[in-house]
Every structure is written in C-alpha cells, then in structure tokens.
C-alpha cells in the first residue's frame, strides 16, 4: 500500500518535472528573446542586456533551470510581463470562476451520465436504450464551443429578442455575494462543459454495466431473491464503480481544456481566458504559471483517484 503510494508519488513528481522542463525550454530556449519581449521594441541594447542579467538569462541553461525550479517550488511564479503584477496573484484572482465552473460541471456530468448509462444498459435494444445511445453520440460529437455559441444564441439571444430573459449572456458573478445569481450565470457554462463528459460517462457506464450484468455474481444476487432494483443499484453499480473512478481521473484533465473554451465563449474571467489572453500578449510567465498549476492539479487529482481505487477494490489492497 505504502509502496503503491510511493510509486504514484514518484510518477506525479516525474510528470511535474517533465512539465516544468517543457515550459522552461519552450520559453527560455525557444526563439523570441524574453528580455526583448519584456523591455519592448523601443528599448536599447544596453537596457535589454541589463534586463537579461537581472533575469539571469545570461547564465548556463541548467543553472537557469534549477533557479527556475527552486523559485517555482517556493510558489514564486514571477511577474507578468504586461502589468508587472505577481503571477500568483493574477492566478488567484481568476481561480473562483474556474473552480465554480469545474466543480459544477463534474457534478453535472456524473449526475447525468451515470443514470443515462444505467438506463441504457438495463434494457439493451429498447427505445430508452436507443435514446441513451443517441445522447451519447450527440454529446461526444458536439464541439464545446459550437455548443456554447448555440446555447447563447438559442437560450440567451432569441428569448431576449422575444422580450424576456431566460439566461444571462455571460460573465461571472461572485458566489459569496449572491449564490442564486451565481448559479443562474453558471447554468449554461456548466451544461456546455459537462455535455461531452456526460456522454463519455454514459457510454462507459453503459458498457461496463452491460458487462457486469452478464457476470455470474449478478445471477447469484438474483438467485438470492433480491429485487431487480437492488440487483442493479447495489450489486451492479458497485461492480462498475472502479472503472468509473478511473475515468474520472482522465476526465479531470479534460475539464481544464474544456474550461478554456467555455470561459472564452461565456466571457468568464477564469484561468483559461487568462491563459488565452496571455498568449495574445506574449505574457510568458502567466502561461508557465497556468500550465504548471494545471499539471499540479491533474497530478493531485490522479493520486486521489488512485487512492479511491485502492479503497474501492479490496483485491488491490
């Protein structure tokens, strides 16, 4: 158990290290002189050289990398090229929107995907199953940004043209000031972000459930005289919890990518839109910060999932 945890932690460290090396190389070695970017077009060579020395860019690469790593570990992500604010503060400002979006979407897709999958699997080939499979196909095929734009057009703009407001047109409202307004503003972003994952979840649930319902232990449960509800929701669902948990780990990585697009569509001031803006501004410290933070998040989420997995499956304990 401890050994398992140790190996997972080692892997997590490897992922983070690889990621940090990737962004470091990308930004400090790749074309485009950071010092020049920082000082701007009009600066003189001397000014640029001064900045280069300040940043330590004139030292050997491995030394620079170690300094970079050391600073990052201490939580110092440097300053934005654009407005000289600490990257950590910029990120912290954007966290609430992204966290609201992510958590809500995860709850939504788990809450939609699993029931649809079970409904589909309970009566394979039936009308309900075909509806479920239709949902899966459409959900998997719908590009997030198309869905977002379509939702805005049909659920915000058209009603407003007809003279009433069904949903707001975007923007993030603080949860603390008014939870209802917050939720109302988040409904469309949540659905947009959750649809694809809900479909993936439904497909996985359906497949696993079909397989599990063919297992001998389900027959044993029926032979015991359990009601069909108990057979499905106790014995069947318990059997598919492990693959579902594993999938959750993979999906958490996807939620961040989806969040970028969703935030962009709905004008949410979150981490994703921060990163996109940073790319436009060539503001590299922000991109580095967001990528590393996302990596850390994914790695932690994966460890949690691994632990859950151990908890759920007595055979690997």
């Amino acid at each position: 158990m401890i050994r398992f945890l140790a190996s997972r932690l080692a892997f997590a460290a490897a992922v983070l290290l690889a990621l940090s090396a990737f962004v470091f190389l990308l930004f400090f070695v790749a074309p485009g002189d950071p010092a020049r970017l920082l000082t701007g077009e009009k600066a003189t060579e001397a000014q640029v050289a001064q900045v280069r020395a300040n940043l330590g860019l004139d030292r050997p690469i491995h030394e620079q990398y170690l300094t970079f790593l050391g600073r990052t570990m201490k939580g110092d992500l440097g300053f934005s090229y654009r407005n000289q604010q600490p990257v950590t503060r910029l990120i912290a400002n954007r966290m609430p929107a992204t966290i609201s979006l992510g958590i809500g979407a995860i709850l939504l897709w788990v809450g939609i995907g699993i029931p649809i999958g079970i409904m589909s699997a309970r009566h394979p080939g039936s009308l309900r199953d075909r509806l479920g499979q239709g949902f899966i196909l459409v959900g998997i095929s719908f590009p997030t940004f198309v869905l977002g734009m379509a939702s805005l057009y049909f659920l915000y703009f058209l009603p407003r043209q007809l003279g009433f407001t069904l949903f707001p047109g975007g923007g993030y409202k603080s949860f603390l000031s008014n939870p209802w307004i917050w939720a109302w503003h988040m409904v469309l972003p949540w659905t947009t972000l959750a649809l694809a994952s809900a479909a993936i979840y439904a497909r996985l649930t359906r497949g696993e459930m079909l397989a599990v319902m063919g297992e001998d232990y389900i027959r044993t449960a029926r032979a015991k005289g359990l009601s069909e509800r108990k057979v499905v929701y106790k014995h069947g669902l318990r059997g598919i919890l492990t693959p579902l948990t594993t999938q959750l780990g993979a999906d958490i990585a996807a939620v961040l990518g989806g969040a970028i697009v969703t935030e962009q569509v709905y004008g949410l001031q979150g981490l994703g839109s921060l990163a996109v803006q940073a790319v436009g501004n060539q503001d590299r410290p922000i991109i580095i910060g967001v990528v590393l933070l996302a990596g850390l998040f994914i790695v932690v989420a994966n460890i949690v999932v691994d632990l859950l997995y151990v908890l759920l499956d007595p055979r690997v304990r």
Partner: peptide, 23 residues
C-alpha cells in the same frame, strides 16, 4: 507505458497554448 501515462496526464490545450505562443 509510463510515457503514455505521461502524455495522457499533460493538459493538452494549455500546452498547445504555450507552444503556439512561442512558435
């Protein structure tokens, strides 16, 4: 296998953003 795990646990879109901002 580990290499595959590694690639799979990279935040795809963010890394692409980073790449695009450079290249």
């Amino acid at each position: 296998g580990r290499a595959m795990d590694l690639v799979m646990s990279i935040p795809v879109l963010l890394c692409t953003l980073a790449l695009v901002s450079v290249f």
